[in-house]
C-alpha cells in the first residue's frame, strides 16, 4: 500500500510541497526519490533569502553514484533550510516526508501549487515509471 502522505502535493520531478497555511511551503524529496538515489552522502541547500522560481533547480542531493538537482515546485523566497541535514544526509533516506525536509519557501503566488499532483496522482506517476 502507498504511504504517500495526502496532506501535500507533488511535482513530477519527485519533490513534495506542503502548505504550512501561512503563505509558506515546505519542500523535500519523496520517499520514492530517495530510494532511487540510494544512500545519500551530501545535501546542498539554497541560502536563506534566495529567490527561487518554480521548476528551477535550487538544491542538490548526492549519493555515491548519482547527483540529482532538486527543483523548487513554487516561485518565491527561501525563508528556512533544514540545517540538520548538514552532516546527516541520511535523514532523508530515513524520513523523507518528515525530518528530511529540505527548505521552506514563502510563495509569491500561493495558488501556484494547485497545478501539482496530489498523492494519488503521484502514486500513479510512480507506477507508470516502474
Amino acid at each position: 500500500m502507498s504511504n504517500t502522505p495526502t496532506d501535500r502535493r507533488y511535482a513530477k520531478s519527485h519533490e513534495w510541497l506542503k502548505d504550512e497555511g501561512d503563505g509558506s511551503f515546505t519542500v523535500g524529496i519523496t520517499d520514492h526519490a530517495q530510494g532511487l538515489l540510494g544512500d545519500l552522502v551530501f545535501v546542498e541547500l539554497p541560502e536563506i533569502g534566495t529567490a527561487v522560481e518554480a521548476g528551477n533547480d535550487c538544491a542538490v542531493v548526492e549519493s555515491v553514484k548519482a547527483a540529482s538537482d532538486v527543483y523548487s515546485p513554487v516561485t518565491g523566497e527561501v525563508i528556512a533550510v533544514n540545517e540538520a541535514l548538514d552532516g546527516a544526509p541520511e535523514t532523508i533516506n530515513e524520513d523523507a516526508f518528515g525530518k528530511g525536509w529540505m527548505f521552506k519557501v514563502k510563495a509569491a503566488d500561493a495558488g501556484e501549487s494547485d497545478s501539482l499532483l496530489d498523492a494519488a496522482g503521484y502514486d500513479a506517476l510512480v507506477a507508470e515509471e516502474e
Binding site: E62, V64, K65, A66
Partner: peptide, 9 residues
C-alpha cells in the same frame, strides 16, 4: 566524492 565529476554530473 565522485558525484562532482563529469561521468556522473
Amino acid at each position: 566524492l565522485q558525484a562532482r565529476e563529469q561521468h556522473i554530473r
